[in-house]
Nucleic acid binder design. Structure first.
Lengths: 219, 219
DNA sequence: TAGATTGTTAATCGATTAACAATC
DNA sequence: TAGATTGTTAATCGATTAACAATC
């Protein structure tokens, strides 16, 4: 195993979720001309615990930080990008070119972060969407197999999600980003991340209601 | 404090995140004509630990489950809905009627789950989108204040997110669902949930790469 | 009754936070 | 040197999982 693979396996999911936020902050610092940044600085501006930031940075950074100065912004950015895989491109396909699917296709942020949506599929006839072509479903298997696509994005209606999922898995897809609010049955070697937008909004609404309720109780 | 408020404060975020999944499964069971369902059944079909499910259900259910039978499906559905606040409607506004914003506006799933997007705003002239009207930004304060809107959804470009956030907060919004990949500065009494789609996809891609890497190492 | 399922108490696990010595 | 910051070891916290008695 090379160095990179070792670093891959030592980061917790929690840390991985914070990395993009550090990354964003560091980009701002860099464009502002700052050369070094310290863990306490990051912690304060991002509202995190100082030790947590220090540990995250220690886990990610190739070079040790410098006492009294902190970390070199440019190097830290590079290290985070390599940990997140921004520098080794992976291809994805999207199935379901409805409103949400097309919104994702138009979003340019994925490419900068190492994932490229190389093709989109839908039950409809082949047609253009912006500069991208939407293919009919029967083209899916050959394309996925030929280009060894490992990531699938599901934005079809609930009822079709499992079927599409099965197709993707059969084509060798190993990770599925699922926007349909259904529980997908998948073999153990496939990774699923469910993005249930309705549930997210509801959770937020509920947590807020809880707070408001509590304030009322405190008074 | 009434009963409901007490229940509100005793559920962990982790449990709250699982509730929509139980809810979905239970709806399926109900429409299939099943009257009772047990924690082990749910655990197996959803790939969760049995004790975890039992604890979640115990925390949520008004009535105790019945040994040997489990929980009454209909009652459990009602209890979960009341815990998640599906039954007491909350209003939200959306700012930024781009592709993603309009996709969210068209999504019908929020209403069933207690949150209704009552208005959308954009910098452009007022115009119609389906059966919904998109208002110009200057209408935001009066509408939010008048209808006491507590939830704001931000789907504007990164650069405008903080400004929109400040406006929403000034209008009395207490919870913000933010799709712009920026760290919003907000007063402590406001709740933010950042929905960073690019980061989610990247994380998935990375975790998958890690697995594939590991398999290679194992061989 | 036997056995499946419940609710609960105790053990484990992982992540966060606190404490502190080392460094420039 | 003094002091800010680092890396690391230990303590705390919360969530998950295991163990088990109670119930129908």
């Amino acid at each position: 195993m090379d160095d990179r693979a070792v670093r891959l396996s030592t980061l917790s999911v929690q840390t991985l979720k914070r990395l993009p936020e550090y990354h964003h902050f560091l980009l701002e610092q860099r464009s502002g001309g700052t050369d070094y940044v310290s863990a306490p600085t990051i912690a304060v501006t991002m509202g995190l615990n100082e030790v947590q930031v220090r540990k995250d940075l220690a886990a990610v950074s190739e070079k040790a930080g410098k006492p009294r100065k902190g970390f070199a912004v440019c190097e830290l950015i590079r290290d985070i990008e390599s940990c997140l895989g921004y520098d080794n491109r992976q291809d994805a396909v999207l199935v379901g070119a409805g409103k949400l699917g097309r919104a994702l296709l138009d979003y340019r942020g994925f490419e900068d972060r190492g994932v490229r949506i190389i093709a989109a599929f839908d039950t409809s006839q082949a047609h253009a969407h912006g500069d991208q072509l939407i293919f009919p479903m029967d083209k899916l298997p050959s394309l996925c197999r030929r280009l060894r696509v490992r990531i699938g994005i599901i934005t079809v209606p609930d009822t079709q999600a499992q079927g599409v999922c099965d197709e993707l898995v059969a084509c060798g897809v190993r990770a599925i980003w699922n926007f349909a609010p259904v529980h997908l049955r998948i073999p153990p070697n496939v990774l699923v991340h469910n993005e249930n937008l309705a549930a997210s909004l509801t959770l937020l609404a509920r947590q807020m209601a809880e707070r408001v309720e509590k304030e009322r109780g405190d008074r």
